[in-house]
Amino acid sequence: MTCLPGHTEKKLGLAIDLDTCVGCHACVTACKGWNDQGYGAPLSDQDAYGADPSGTFLNRVHSYSVQPDQGAAQIINFPRSCLHCEDAPCVTVCPTGASYKRVEDGIVLVNESDCIGCGLCAWACPYGAREMDVDEGVMKKCTLCVDRIYNENLPEEDREPACVRGCPTGARHFGDFADPDSKVSQLAAKRGGYDLMPDMGTKPTNKYLPPRPKDKRLDASLLAPLLDIEAKGFAGWLDRVLGKI
């Protein structure tokens, strides 16, 4: 049913730390790897080794340059994936009931055997979190690794989304935002976690933790002293002699 549940028991989602993310795309690769063999149709690629490669991904990492009003400019790496919105417009527009939000944990999923591939849900999502798979003609989106987080065949430390598990800097945190004591709720509260495009009225579950401002301005490269090489010994003598001629 594509009517939204009024209330979900849990609100599972991610807290993404823009201060920590180094933009290595490990989460993109981990996501693609897991979802190539996990839930539903594999994420296909077209012309993967050709001149115009493209493919389905559920997570993309942008890089922005930000010039604050005061102080030095910063590069901010910005992972973008489904925010598992409370008022998910992608769900209500779906004509077939393929898109739905789970009552038990708030995860927004697509039942691919019902999806006709009309693409309306991707239009409705303000965040570009849904991509239609070209090979299968069905809508793909982040499942919050629903096939990992409850999977008792996996060691306990692996029961979190592949992107969280794969992030080498610990910039991605997974948990229940309905529980005020959870790690993610605490983090969001402490760091001022915020919603993307709040005026769109989607009430995203995922929170972004803002980058901390740079504390000192770096006008010259940290590597500058290393470039100032002074030759010694024979090379130094040669340098001095040649400098005089």
């Binding site: 823009l18 933009g23 942008h62 890089s63 922005y64 340059s65 930000v66 010039q67 604050p68 009003d69 590069i75 901010i76 910005f78 915020y194 919603d195 993307l196 972004y208 803002p210 980058p211």
Partner: peptide, 11 residues
């Protein structure tokens, strides 16, 4: 993006 200041695409 929720970022303050002048935001432009780097990559």
């Amino acid at each position: 993006t929720g970022l303050r200041g002048e935001v432009s695409v780097f990559e």
